[in-house]
Design a protein around this nucleic acid. Structure first.
Length: 425
RNA sequence: GGAGAGAUGGCAGAGUGGUCGAAUGCGACAGUCUUGAAAACUGUUGUACGAGCAAUCGUACCGAGGGUUCGAAUCCCUCUCUCUCCGCCA
């Protein structure tokens, strides 16, 4: 949600900034028009209400003819007000509807671009492994080692699901737990949130599109399966006023993530890359506006640190305006090298959503001076099921086995995945 | 799933149709007193929207939404949530 006051005061800025995200300038004009109509009506209603209040105070002391007369007057005022209120509700609905469509303006530093092709590679880190054989894709490696069963998952649940089996089940759990601990060590507060939320939480974080969400018991419970724990975590402080002295507030959370992926038919159909259900450790930070940029860099550094410890080669991508989405002003993707696919693919990402989500969710901070501002909100992936893919592809061996990153040896209880390492069932 | 109770300011808690944005207590903040602190006393202490350069003024908000009324925290309807007891359950 954008600040209507800011929009009113500086429409040129928003016109320019939103154009970079592909928003037609006409929408801004429509918003301003709707805003003016809405304010006009509001003012007239308030004038009538003021008169009502004034007369109401005198009412008890009136009697007889005088009272009759005043009552009659008030009846007309009441009716007029009611009529105006109907109009006002309508105009407010129109304004709200327009405002809700507008995305968060991109940061000045965000590169322009229409799609992910406009993304800018910032730097490349890590050593790309060399193979004296043709490296395989993750699903092939995993199926051969009896780690992944997508045939049976298709039978049971349909396309884009999987059974993670044997060592891979352990590896993913280890990865999640390790990341949760690592980030907790950096001062983030570990949290397991609800995985079903109300509509408001999904809306507030900017993920309400129908193609994205599963709804549980439509018309009955109307709960949404979370697509990321960002949804319940950002909503954690909805309708609250936080204190400046408590800022920044950092959380690291675990959740399974459920996504319909309805807009991606035919893309990444094999294996674990794009599925309806996966797991993720997410970081969410609430802070003062002036802290947001530094914290964004901090989140990026932390994500890099995690990939580095795993030994996964990656590149940092500055995501362009056309690929930012509704809520983010600035976003970095970390893309890992996948030797089997022979390309860099998105593993984790971190977004600075400024005050876009906190306006929708009404999350504010009271400064020491007494001033109240909307919180700035950032998020970032610590790890997800995708780095598991990167591990499989980068550490595959000629004999079909897979070595495990050293940092996970102890948690996993094994250093290598070979055929029949764990008893198969 | 069954039975009951409830939702008011940071918290506790009064208020059952008009002068109620809302008593009182606690907390917090400021001041007086004190070498300092405590105690005591005095004062201040919600949010949003709109108008105004500003001081300020107006309006709305007593879980949410609707209704009755000239007028609703108060009456009516719907919904949500919380608590207690019973049952079931990881």
């Amino acid at each position: 949600m954008l600040d209507i006051k800011a929009l009113r005061e500086n429409p040129e800025y928003f016109q320019k900034a939103l154009k970079r995200k592909g928003v037609d300038g006409k929408v801004i004009q429509d918003v301003l028009k709707a805003d003016e109509l809405h304010r006009n009506l509001l003012q007239r209603i308030e004038e009538l209400a003021a008169r009502q209040n004034e007369v109401s105070k005198k009412m008890p002391s009136l009697s007889g003819n005088e009272k009759e007369k005043v009552l009659a007057d008030m009846k007309t005022i009441s009716a007029e007000k009611k009529e105006l209120q109907t109009q006002q509700e309508q105009s407010e609905g129109v304004l709200q509807g327009l405002l809700e469509q507008l995305p968060n303006p991109p940061s000045d530093s965000t590169p322009d671009g229409k799609s992910d092709e406009g993304n800018v590679i910032v730097r490349t880190e890590g050593k790309i492994p060399k193979f004296d054989f043709t490296p395989r894709e993750h699903w092939e490696i995993a199926e051969k080692l009896n780690l992944l069963d997508t045939e049976r998952s298709a039978k049971v649940s349909g396309a884009r699901f999987y059974y993670l089996r044997n060592e891979l089940a352990i590896l993913q759990q280890a990865l999640m737990f390790w990341a949760l601990q690592e980030v907790t060590k950096k001062g983030f507060s570990p949290t397991i949130p609800p995985f079903l939320t109300r509509k408001q939480a999904i809306y507030g974080t900017g993920y309400l599109a129908k193609e994205e969400n599963y709804i549980v018991n439509p018309g009955e419970d109307d709960l949404y399966l979370v697509g990321t724990s960002e949804v319940p975590m950002v909503s954690f402080y909805a309708d609250e006023i936080l204190e400046e002295s408590d800022m920044p507030q950092k959380f690291v959370s675990y959740s399974p993530c459920f996504r319909r992926e309805a807009g991606s038919y035919g893309k990444d159909t094999k294996g674990m890359f794009r599925v309806h259900q996966f797991e993720k450790i997410e970081m969410v930070v609430f802070c003062l506006p002036e802290q947001a940029e530094d914290i964004h860099q901090e989140l990026l550094a932390l994500e890099e640190h995690l990939l580095q410890q795993l030994g996964i080669p990656y590149q940092v991508v500055d995501v362009c305006t056309g690929d930012l989405g509704l809520s983010a002003a600035k976003k970095y993707d970390l893309e890992a090298w996948l030797p089997g696919q022979k390309q860099y693919r998105e593993m984790t990402s971190t977004s600075n959503c400024t005050d876009f989500q906190s306006r929708r969710l009404n999350i504010r901070i009271r400064r020491k001076s007494g001033e109240i501002v909307h919180a700035h909100v950032l998020n970032g992936t610590a790890v997800s099921s995708r780095p598991v893919i990167a591990i499989l592809e980068n550490f595959q061996q000629k004999d079909g086995s897979v070595e495990i990153p050293k940092i996970l040896h102890e948690l996993c209880g094994f250093k290598k995945i070979e055929k029949k390492c764990l008893p198969e069932t």
